[in-house]
């Protein structure tokens, strides 16, 4: 999406650091600022997931505005 000129932010859990690094290299952007959060999230309650999203939101804004 960045290649298409659309600002984007990627969030991964921290068990997927090698996968995110591999994908960034594969797409020619080895320094791509993937945002990581503690694994896992699939069993979080709605409230806990919302709290996690609120915690990550400022990081997403920084990445989208190029200050990541």
């Amino acid at each position: 999406m960045e290649n298409a000129g659309i600002p984007s932010a990627t969030i991964c859990t921290d068990r997927f650091i090698p996968t995110a690094a591999g994908m960034a290299k594969m797409w020619g952007a080895p320094d791509y600022p993937t945002i990581f959060t503690e694994h896992p999230i699939e069993n979080l309650s709605r409230e806990a997931l919302r709290a996690r999203a609120e915690e990550l939101a400022p990081k997403v804004v920084r990445v989208l505005t190029g200050e990541g």
């Binding site: 995110a20 591999g22 994908m23 290299k25």
Partner: peptide
């Protein structure tokens, strides 16, 4: 497990 994300 590779940590660097290196692949062939």
């Amino acid at each position: 497990m590779p940590e660097s994300g290196d692949t062939n």
